[in-house]
Design a binder for these strands. Structure first.
Lengths: 343, 343
DNA sequence: CTGTTAGCGCTTTCAT
DNA sequence: ATGAAAGCGCTAACAG
């Protein structure tokens, strides 16, 4: 009758109803070993009967621990990030964690602000994909210093020793290029991404490495940089390639938008895949909707999210273990061969 | 020297350093009016000097208020939801709120579980897009009863009186159909979505309403349901339309994937837009990458997120106001005319 | 195995 | 305009 309006049942209410101490109730709730089966059952039954659920705020306040993971990415509505986050959420939820999401908009100031906020919020951990502008990592070093587990995904962070989950971009791009070579291409062009960004640098390197390894000449005039890897840029660069004087029979693109653009532009003047083979990167929805269907590299974004979450939660729960250690996980990508590169 | 390792500076430390009471410090921090300018400045300076920031957990614990908004959607990695969430995050962050995200996977049990958890977490509010399986709204009614502000987005929830933000699907579909009619189409087909889902029902209704209004006959054999609105279904249904005996000179599709499929299939046998005009729905990236470029309806997902967040935060902060009131906001969509329907 | 007790950092009356 | 003090619900020594 007392709690009729205060709505929330507390462990005190449970204890009183059962004539035990609040510690006993608290112990049952946290699965403390030193509790008899009898009282455990008694308490658990009462908990159900009275519809009690623990107040997570009070619990966090007291224990200085939360079940909340901060996630920072440039934008949520980018296909890749939304998939990664989906993976993070799924794994985290399963493990009893919640995720709180922030968008840095690739703005360094905002990213710092967010990270600082997360630090002061007593988050259990932080998963972040640093923005394009981010060159210094002091904000993340502070997180480490504050002893908050940290995982960086997708972008490399030179000089920051921390857990990282990344696509093996170099290997993936190598595989893509090698695939075209094995399909018979002798002169392969590359539409690359912003060379200020490590993953796009890696994709260019993978392309070059494959050419070298198979004794094909690297021709700079066949390498075109698309800063934003947009469809429109792809259209323009494909046109440039056509107009250039160096002939080519294959194109490795750093994403599927530019690859789709290349297909559209080039299929008007060449037969794909007979005379020209094209491969993209990321396995966007468009890759199956274009004709010919686009071969590509699946970037396993969803899987990456799961791995990032797993790595982080491991750290959170093994907090007492070797904190100085860190690992870099390279996610394997999958070559998906469709019509645009078949032979 | 005392706090050298306890890391966190508290209001107590500030108070001690200044020889004022903790209440004074607390008042300054919460902008209480009854504080002299002198002490306000004194405290604020010390706060900066000592690098103090308020402990949000302790604050929430004491005040029973949080700055955390729960967001529940079927999946984050669906283009539409990721855009809505992006909008929510942007507005919420600006207003000093954080968003905690959950995926129901369109699973009713999981959705209930999540909502219950959010309720017990003392969330400041909840924004939800109910899953496809959800037919009962008891879990949401409980949220309302617990006095937690609630906003539902995208899906209608019959029988639940609450704040809603929805696309005006009927009007949008009407506009799309009307556009084809005005462009000269006399016999228009429709590739519809799952008719168990209210928004797809509304799109079908909008289509029919337009035909009626312009005195065109509704022919059931020109209406094809694509349960999942996938590209493959689009391919199949476009084929069915070709093979049917009823001729048509326009197609209104319930999304861009099926519309893209229709274009691909039909441009082999008809001239688009000269002999056949096609319009999609949602303005997915693919709509500008296909040839001819696809006319479509922009669903303003990002804007919808902003509006949802705004509505919710209004409620949170005007908590004392008329709680029984609720509003339904219909988001205006935009007709985007591209090549596939021009005349 | 169980109970007693001391707070965590803050907000908020109630004084003055 | 400021201070004193109570206590939010829970955890975790410590004591038996």
């Amino acid at each position: 009758m007392k709690n009729i309006d205060s709505s929330r049942v507390t462990i005190k209410d449970i204890a009183k109803a059962l004539n035990v101490s609040i510690s006993t109730v608290s112990r049952v709730l946290s699965n403390h070993p030193a509790i008899s089966e009898a009282t455990r059952k008694l308490v658990n039954d009462k908990v159900k009967e009275m519809g009690f659920s623990i107040d997570p705020i009070a619990s966090s306040f007291r224990s200085k621990k939360t079940k909340s993971i901060g996630v920072v990415c440039p934008r949520i509505d980018i296909d890749f990030h939304s998939k990664v986050i989906s993976g993070i959420e799924e794994y985290a939820y399963q493990q009893g964690y919640q995720i709180t999401i922030f968008q840095s908009q690739d703005n360094y100031q905002k990213e710092k602000e967010i990270v600082q906020m997360i630090e002061s919020t007593l988050a259990a951990g932080l998963i972040i994909c640093p923005g394009l502008e981010t060159r210094k990592y002091d904000h993340l070093k502070k997180i480490k210093k504050a002893n908050i587990p940290l995982v960086v995904y997708d972008r490399s962070t030179d000089g920051l020793k921390t857990n990282k989950v990344m696509i093996n971009d170099l290997e993936a791009s190598f595989k893509a290029t090698e695939h075209l070579i094995k399909a018979g291409c002798k002169s392969i062009a590359h539409i690359s991404g912003d060379q200020e960004v490590s993953i796009f640098k890696a994709r260019l390197l993978g392309y070059k490495k494959a050419l070298e390894q198979y004794n094909l000449e690297i021709r700079e005039e066949l390498i075109k940089e698309a800063k934003h890897l947009s469809h429109q840029e792809g259209l323009n660069l494909a046109q440039e390639l056509i107009q250039g004087k160096t002939s080519f029979d294959g194109i490795v693109c750093a994403n599927d938008y530019t690859a789709a653009a290349a297909i559209q532009t080039l299929k008007k003047v060449r037969r794909i895949p007979e005379d020209l083979k094209i491969i993209g990167f990321s396995n966007y929805p468009i890759s199956t909707m274009i004709e010919p269907q686009l071969s590509t590299i699946d970037d396993s974004a969803y899987h990456m999210g799961k791995v990032a979450a797993k790595l982080l939660i491991q750290q959170i729960e093994d907090r007492d273990l070797d904190l100085l250690d860190y690992q870099e996980v390279l996610i394997k990508t999958e070559l998906i061969v469709r019509e645009s590169s078949s032979h």
